[in-house]
Simulated scan of single mutants.
Amino acid sequence: MDAAWWDRQVYGTDRDDPAPGPKPGHEYVELLGGPLDGMLLDVTGWEPQEIVDGAMLMSDHGQFGPASRSEYEPAEGHLGGVGRFVWRGDVP
């Protein structure tokens, strides 16, 4: 991973957090597209099926405003492995 990876914000951390980036020893997926584009999602300890299923993540910047959810699923070629989740849309 390059140095820019370590400067990324992890989903669920506050922007005011003095260390919002990834932590050594954790596994992350990169979120691509949608309101959480560019953030990292900590998937440390997730079961393989959970990664295949993707994630519904709360986002204040989604299509439906505060407390909406954004759906992300593994990018093609990353099924069953840590890599990238792509945005599939928002739900209220």
Results as ranks from 00 to 15, higher is better:
P24K: 14
P24T: 15
P24N: 15
G25P: 09
G25E: 09
G25N: 14
G25K: 13
E27N: 14
E30Y: 14
L31I: 06
L31F: 05
L32C: 10
L32Q: 13
G33Y: 05
P35A: 14
P35H: 09
P35V: 09
P35W: 11
L36P: 07
L36Y: 08
G38V: 06
G38I: 09
G38E: 07
M39P: 00
M39D: 02
L40G: 02
L40W: 05
L41H: 05
D42W: 05
D42V: 07
D42G: 05
V43E: 02
V43A: 02
V43L: 08
T44W: 00
G45D: 06
W46N: 00
W46H: 02
E47M: 09
E47H: 14
E47L: 11
Q49V: 12
Q49C: 00
Q49K: 11
Q49I: 06
E50L: 04
E50F: 07
I51S: 06
V52R: 15
D53S: 05
D53F: 00
G54N: 04
A55L: 00
A55H: 01
M56H: 12
M56G: 11
M56C: 09
L57P: 00
L57D: 03
M58C: 11
M58H: 13
S59T: 15
D60T: 02
H61Q: 14
H61V: 10
H61K: 12
G62M: 07
G62Q: 03
Q63K: 14
F64R: 04
F64L: 04
F64P: 09
G65A: 04
P66R: 15
P66K: 15
A67C: 08
S68L: 00
S68W: 02
R69D: 12
R69C: 13
S70I: 03
E71C: 13
Y72A: 02
E73F: 03
E73S: 04
P74T: 02
P74Y: 01
A75W: 11
A75S: 08
E76M: 13
E76N: 13
G77D: 03
G77S: 01
G77Y: 05
H78K: 10
H78Q: 07
H78G: 02
L79T: 12
G80F: 00
G80H: 01
G81F: 06
V82L: 02
G83Y: 08
G83A: 05
G83R: 08
F85L: 03
F85M: 00
V86Y: 01
V86T: 12
W87P: 03
W87D: 07
R88Y: 11
R88K: 12
G89F: 08
G89K: 07
G89Q: 06
D90I: 11
D90V: 12
D90F: 10
V91E: 13
V91M: 10
V91Q: 08
